[in-house]
């Protein structure tokens, strides 16, 4: 029984034997992307879970060339690798970065912005688990409103994180980047298509993939994929692309599934009351009104 998505991928595994928690969404994103890009991908991973679980000397879980960068320097190291290999006469390679939400929206945003401004020929993938997981679940700029983390605790006065998620996708797009996209590991075929498309475009590419973390989100290891699907189905995340100066929506849920059901499955949102949930639904509806107005649907 042929699976068209599987046929596109290398049968080889490039991220194997890693020490990520069982059911880690980030490891699925890294694995899938490398199976698109193949042996000649040169990957850069800053401090964060994916480097911590992939490089435990002498257990080295990448079978392509891979390197750990400074936390803030994913994009600048990608720039250097791309320029260096090109100067040495190589052309058949892809410089790809995998950075977390903290490593992207907070500490690495300056290097990323610089790389996009120079239009360096790299792929930057943000595996977004919505907190600084590797150091024990601290809030990042991509932690959503209401989420409980160790630095945004939930009590009777304050119900977790007070601020909404930064909009990294549109921040990247605002640079006039050749290609940017959002994705979710719950829609793996869509993600794989986007990595493949990015690999054929010259210049900087940014892909933002939602990658649930069972440990930090308070879900079971076997729920990662369904929760990553549900966040799209309930409208709190969306699958879109930015190309040639235009936004495109790739997937439009007919009716949104229940936001409350999505939230209440996760330990990090258990404390939210009805008012909080109303606030979240209102911000979703506002976002979708914006999408309807500004994104083409294809």
């Amino acid at each position: 029984m042929a699976n068209p998505t599987a046929e596109k991928l290398s049968r080889d595994e490039y991220f194997y034997g890693h020490k990520a928690c069982a059911g880690c969404g980030g490891s699925l994103a890294v694995r899938a992307a490398l199976k698109v890009l193949g042996q000649n991908a040169v990957s850069v991973l800053p401090a964060g879970c994916m480097s911590a679980v992939g490089f435990n000397f002498p257990q080295l879980c990448f079978s392509n060339n891979s390197i750990i960068s400074t936390f803030a320097g994913t994009a600048s190291m990608l720039t250097g690798i791309e320029a260096g290999l090109r100067a040495k006469g190589y052309s058949d390679f892809t410089a790809v970065g995998f950075a977390g939400d903290g490593g992207t929206a907070d500490i690495g945003i300056q290097a990323l912005s610089g790389a996009i401004a120079r239009n360096d020929n790299i792929i930057y993938i943000c595996d977004d688990n919505e907190a600084y997981m590797n150091t024990g679940i601290q809030k990042s700029g991509l932690t959503p409103f209401g989420a409980r983390t160790t630095t945004t605790p939930a009590g009777s006065n304050i119900h977790g994180n007070l601020r909404p998620k930064k909009n990294m996708f549109e921040i990247a797009a605002a640079h006039g980047i050749p290609y940017a996209a959002t994705a979710s590991v719950g829609y793996i075929t869509d993600f794989i298509k986007k990595v493949e498309k990015a690999s054929k475009i010259q210049g900087t590419k940014y892909i933002h993939v939602i990658a649930p973390c069972p440990t930090g989100w308070g879900i079971q290891p076997d729920e990662t994929v369904e929760i990553a699907k549900e966040v799209v189905d309930c409208g709190l995340w969306y699958l879109a692309e930015y190309e040639n100066g235009e936004f495109t929506l790739n997937h439009k849920p007919k009716d949104f599934s229940s936001v409350e059901a999505y939230l209440k499955k996760q330990g990090r949102f258990k404390h939210l009351d009805l008012d909080d949930i109303k606030t979240i639904i209102a911000s979703r509806d506002k976002k979708w009104a914006y999408i309807e107005k500004n994104f083409a649907y294809r």
Binding site: N3, F15, G23, L28, V225
Partner: peptide, 11 residues
């Protein structure tokens, strides 16, 4: 059908 192959985080 290879769906499990596509979604296994550990490959």
């Amino acid at each position: 059908c290879e769906q499990c192959y596509l979604y296994c985080p550990d490959g």
